[in-house]
Write a protein that binds this DNA or RNA. Sequence first.
RNA 1: CGGGACGUGGCGCAGUUUGGCAGCGCGCAGCGUUCGGGACGCUGAGGUCGCGGGUUCAAAUCCCGCCGUCCCGACCA
Length: 569
Amino acid sequence: MRLSKLFAPTLRENPAEAEVPSHRLLLRAAFIRPVVSGISATLPLGLRTMRKVERIVREEMDASGAQEIRLPITLPADPWKTTGRYGLYGDLLFKLRDRHGREMLLGPTQEEAVTPLVAGDRPSYRDLPVNLYQIEWKYRDEFRPRFGLLRGREFLMKDAYSFDRDEGGMARSYQVMSAAYRRIFDRCGLRYVVVEAEPGQIGGGINHEFMAVAEVGEDLFVECADGDYIADMKAARPLVLQPDVRVETEPLTEVHTPGAAAVEAVAAFLSRDRTEVLKCMMFDVDGRPVAVLVPGDREIEEAKLERLFFPKPVRTFDEEDFVAHGLAKGYVGPRGLPDGVQILADHMVRGKGNWVTGANRPDHHVTGANTPRDFRVDLYEDVVVIRSGDRCPNDGGELRVGRSIVVGHIYQLGTKYSDPLKATFVDEDGSERPFEMGCYGIGISRIMAAVAEQYHDDAGLTWPKAIAPFQAAVIVANRDDERASLEGERIYEELTELGVDAVVDDRDETAGVKFADADLVGYPVQVVVGRKGIGRGTADVKVRRTGERSHVPLGEATSAAVNALSAAP
RNA sequence: CGGGACGUGGCGCAGUUUGGCAGCGCGCAGCGUUCGGGACGCUGAGGUCGCGGGUUCAAAUCCCGCCGUCCCGACCA
């Protein structure tokens, strides 16, 4: 490719709308252009990098035995209602109607499409396992798109779906995908961690996220200082130390706490520590009231509740809910709740007592509340938000919080979709059984941004050679020097001949502009041919990532560039 | 959805407080000089000042409404 012909209008100044490095640089280096919030156009350079990521993904998926298909983006809404995800996704779905008024949606993921597809031909157990994947654009009307490609409303995703006969098969398919994912992210050059995670709106049991470590990451993870545990913050289970000493049980006493609704206020009013207050939060789970109890210094991880009740939508009570259930907002406690309210408590509540908690009466709390004497707990579950300093569930070590960008997520779904969609195969004994499914996602467009986030410097992007839009740039430094142009052309052609993805900067621009653009775009290797070098019979080879330069004899410039490239990261 | 900021040639911004010829830098076009780290000079093109309404002799500027973009937050009782 000749840069004089390439559509790559680079920007000298930072676009006003871009805050994070990846977004800023992808815009400046002409990889993408904004269209509307959360949706971008992809320019030639961006498309080349994305295609290279795609190719890596495709190769590893194919090598792992998965087969590529293509599912529609425009989907009927009905199967989504069957699985309950129509309500669960809610406004996150791009919804539309066709001319007959039929409800449709733009696919945010494709379980509802692929499952009937496989079940439709009523396969035999002999046909299993099957793993189908596609690379296609996905649509999610995010409540707050941000950071360019990192959280867009339209994004390119590889999604795969495995169908197995039994749980053992599902676990094997899962392992195969997990291994393929590691190879993919390794080849892309990403620095990443694999963590236990929350299944979110996909649902299911065992699942892992592949997180690219990055300061601007929206996703938090915790890691044990001893290195034996790592998990998504939303999934991490803190080790709960039970107090050894049982304190004397206090009598239950109602106290007047006017205006002290929040935990902070109650604790201050009664001169107690926040940890002595029992926080009682009300949730609506698909129309049913659920009270959730955690210590007053703790917060509730809604993702954990969603997982517990999947696929029923979980939301906190609004004003109307409090009125409808006759509850005093700010003064709710587990004692004296109306019948039919399920009471769920975190493990941290177990074994402690003498709580200060709401009295279910405006402006009143109780002290000395103990279970089971004063209130019941229907279920103990892990529901708290983990935080730095919590104990590792494996060895009690200290947990620390890190930031990352989720680039891949794999799930063991079991029969979460095959059951409601009645997706079955015929087993050996002639019976129809639901598939044991898995699903596996990779954000292709997000990988491009995540790599940009990990690999850049003040001058621009520093792509790993595997996914750089071009591997090498031949820069003709003196546009008025015919010799430089000829040598540049020669080296460019030789590189291309050798299978190197190269460009030649033959633009009518000054050397400074060409150098700056080459650094900005981030070609892993630059070859500079100019009057100065030609005078002494040399060209320069520069490795972008390290900044390392060397003078090489003009005649050996091509092979020197090839060598530099093979040595480059 | 709540809060905040912003919206002025392709990009980055000033001008709005105090209404009075629409500006600057970069980029773009032409000519000339330059030519190894974002060159210089001269000439030039390019703007419904986000949109709609209102006030006024006069609105980028004041008032009302809407739209868009970005940032922060989102029920913690």
